[in-house]
Design a protein around this nucleic acid. Structure first.
Lengths: 219, 219, 219, 219
DNA sequence: TATGAATGAGACTTCATTCAT
DNA sequence: CATGAATGAAGTCTCATTCAT
């Protein structure tokens, strides 16, 4: 039987409830540890109803995933837009970006992990995630292109990737291990990215670098 | 009944065969996509024999994991030892390290991914992996301490972590997406790490940095 | 997942069918000789359906047991009520009781034996059976208290137990071995119980006792 | 492969060890709850060795059973012999008999229960047990025949059976429930049997009967 | 002969999915 | 549209028994 596309208000709401319940359960117990009956019950509907809206269990996961990414994209885009216009080349840019990621991570932390697990396991998930990663890298790449003049690196493609993956993994490590020294790690990460991207400002000022101001022009 | 501890030569061999078959299958089809019957058959033994050696499916996974890490550790340690003595502070160190990781990754590439998937799902796996990560970070940290004089960073703990996670994720991205521009990414990553860790060598030579030789003394 | 509590008519009927099929099979082939697949098939449902209603094989057994005892109790209580009011102290009481037991036994004879087997093996069964035995002994005890004046025994508790167990085992022996001399055994058993409980009616009439009328008053 | 009949001292001892281990385990965990590996280990031999001496798991059970009965028989026979010659018609006979049974029961109490469970389940066990029961009934029957003159009952066959089963079940109840009022139950049981079998001794002395001496002549 | 490793049928159980009401 | 009962394939695990050494 084909999947139902809800037409009425009620149907749309039901579908939404199912997605939310599924996300909650996947986050708590993982995809493999959650069964459709549980999802249905948590959503307050009958088992059969689940299959009226979703072709199979993976379908909810994918839909939840799409939603999840949409939110990420939105946050990221807003961030980029804000920072880009606020004055291109402002160095706090990356620190802000890291904080953005951290925050976004926090919202659906556990779902993010389940997602990562599926990523390596399921091609469809991989594709979705890869698209998202590519988009993020694209943002960074465009940003770098915009401030190319200030940079010491030349291969902007590679730089964007390296920067993205570094942020990605450090943020993940922070979020997952609930690192107590979060602030230092964020500082160190931002410092690394900035040391890498930006040319030292002409003077040998780099000694005694302190993460935040080391690159402030004024030098 | 408890797990069998092989007492005859034959038993030891059988157990080894099972572990190998399991790793192969987990890598190909994932943990959840592999069943114990398949593992047994792939190892050339009967189902029951599997359970003589392993309490359940996860038990093989954990044992395989332990083995896998033991190899990683060994490779890493050898590498560190070799590089450290070869001339402390030689800058190719990190590039070498990245290549090491890439190589190690390559050996059991798919198993590594299955592992990552389990990492987020299973506490026991998490623990094992966390221990491994901590060990790696420890290596780096000790290395940095050894060459502290040459460094621009001061919080070596944080630096070691940031460096480790960056390498980890970039290597993973390279390995998983079979990036065609592997060389550039490795260069960029090494460049980032070095820019971050090392003080520009006194002269304003940092301009026009080229990854490999930029830091070679002689400057 | 938890056991289903049938909410539709169909569900209630299915559960009943499963219990009946299980009782039939347990009686024929014993608890250990019957598997859940067979039970499901005999009930005309799928294997999984069995587990929707019962957590495991023992659960059906226990539920069947409870049902079985409920019927026993009902028969016994009716019997007691009828005989007690029909004229307290009428001696055919015990003969009637024996016949009751025999009849009740006959209905689910084989199930009774499987039950006895489980009794010694499973604590939960033991508990249920012990409760039933205690209830039966309670009936007899109360009956004896009611006719205390006519009795030669004084420790009514002990008497009730001894009488109950004697009936129990003789009835069991009769039912299980399909003794050809059932009538004689019943007579002998009733005679034994009555000789024990009731004082000889004043005269030395006890010689040449014939089971049935030996104790009829009026000697 | 055929079962080995031990020829050497060592073999005989091994077989004995296996039987003992099996009895112990069957008593503790039941026939179905014990596996051959456990038996072998408890006996201090290898799994395969078990099958050198016994065709299958049931075979040990049967052999243990036979041994168990042999002991019972011996005790019973000695008892009968002793009492019979000590003065036929001595009334303490049945009380002694009950005590004998209780003692015999106590020795292998748990094995006895496992046996009862198997009895209803396995034809071979049934046959063995039935033979044993018949033998016991035979003893009683012969005893009764010997003192026929003193008895009020005439159908000695039926009487023997009723008496045997009563003793059997009351003893079982005592042993299994560890009844605190064991003494009273034994008294009551003996009283019942004696009231049943023996004619009141000529005088209307039966009033105020006390189990032990009520029937002593010369009263 | 003893050892303990190996066998494999079969038991129990779960759950994604379909169906009757 | 919703409900919850039913399906049955597939997976996990056990254990009586056989076999290689």
């Amino acid at each position: 039987m084909n999947t139902r596309v809800p037409q009425q208000q009620r149907g749309i709401q039901t579908k939404q409830q199912i997605i939310e319940a599924a996300m909650r359960l996947f986050s708590q117990k993982g995809f493999h540890g959650t069964n459709t009956k549980e999802i249905a019950r948590a959503a307050g509907v009958a088992t059969g109803c689940f299959y009226a809206y979703f072709g199979d269990k993976k379908a909810v996961f994918m839909e939840a995933l799409t939603l999840y990414f949409a939110q990420f994209h939105q946050i990221a885009q807003e961030q980029i837009a804000r920072l880009s216009t606020a004055g291109a080349g402002q160095k706090p840019f990356f620190k802000e970006m890291i904080r953005s990621f951290l925050k976004a991570h926090g919202v659906f932390k556990d779902f993010h992990h389940e997602l990562t697990a599926m990523y390596y396991t399921d091609p469809a998930v991989l594709q979705l995630v890869a698209a998202y990663d590519a988009a993020c890298i694209g943002y960074i790449s465009r940003y770098l292109t915009g401030i190319q003049a200030q940079l010491r690196v030349t291969d902007l493609e590679a730089a964007a990737k390296v920067v993205y993956w570094s942020i990605h993994s450090v943020v993940d490590a922070i979020a997952f291990t609930a690192a107590p020294n979060e602030a230092q790690l964020v500082d160190a990460l931002a410092d690394m990215i900035e040391s890498y991207l930006f040319a030292p400002s002409g003077t040998p000022a780099a000694q005694g670098v302190r993460p935040d101001d080391s690159l402030s022009p004024g030098g």
